[in-house]
């Protein structure tokens, strides 16, 4: 069964149907929230609040549209709200690595931690990349989730990926720049 089957039951307050929905979507929700917030407790709160909102506001979901973009819009908004609220702490948990020379100078072989490079990007590029790579969302879906224009989402994914390449292949970048 999928969301179409569970929708009416959840609307009627059916716990079993809601549990099925939770089992179907919790794992990737936790992964996504963990990657966006970079904090286990914050991710837990974001996912919990998302499912509470889904349960209480299921009537505002338009059944003719796909469920996942709607669900992930609530999740990413909740992650961003918590990040903003706790920005003082998150700065200390993950320093800005984008301008860290030691990373830029490392070669592809020695830099095995691509995750760290993704996390060093600014949120405008980091979050679309997380949605693309972790969950496999398309540009259109990412635009819908982040309430962006399609072209803006496309450009952010392109620039984000370009920055990953720049960080991972600094030699190649230098060669291209000197050409």
């Amino acid at each position: 069964m999928n969301i179409d089957g569970w929708y009416k039951q959840i609307l009627a307050g059916d716990k079993d149907a809601f549990r099925h929905l939770y089992e179907a979507y919790a794992e990737y929700a936790i992964r996504t929230a963990s990657a966006i917030t970079r904090n286990r407790e914050m991710a837990k709160d974001a996912v919990q609040e998302t499912f509470i909102r889904v349960y209480r506001q299921i009537d505002s979901y338009n059944q003719s549209s796909p469920f996942e973009p709607w669900f992930y819009r609530i999740l990413t908004n909740e992650c961003m709200r918590l990040l903003k609220k706790n920005s003082f702490y998150s700065k200390f948990e993950h320093p800005d690595l984008e301008n860290e020379p030691s990373i830029a100078e490392e070669s592809f072989d020695s830099l095995s931690d691509l995750y760290t490079v993704i996390q060093s990007l600014d949120d405008a590029h980091r979050i679309p990349l997380i949605l693309k790579y972790l969950k496999g969302f398309t540009e259109k879906e990412i635009a819908e989730i982040l309430e962006l224009n399609h072209n803006t989402a496309k450009s952010r994914l392109f620039k984000g990926r370009q920055r990953l390449k720049d960080q991972l292949f600094p030699t190649e970048r230098r060669l291209n720049n000197s050409e």
């Binding site: 919790a26 992964r31 990349l129 496999g136």
Partner: peptide, 29 residues
Amino acid sequence: RATDELHARTDKHLQVLKDQIWEELEQEL
């Protein structure tokens, strides 16, 4: 590589978190 690393780095405590969140949802809702 990006896909693999994001999966690997978000794998930790997944089941524990999933159980904890459900427990709290059950109480809350």
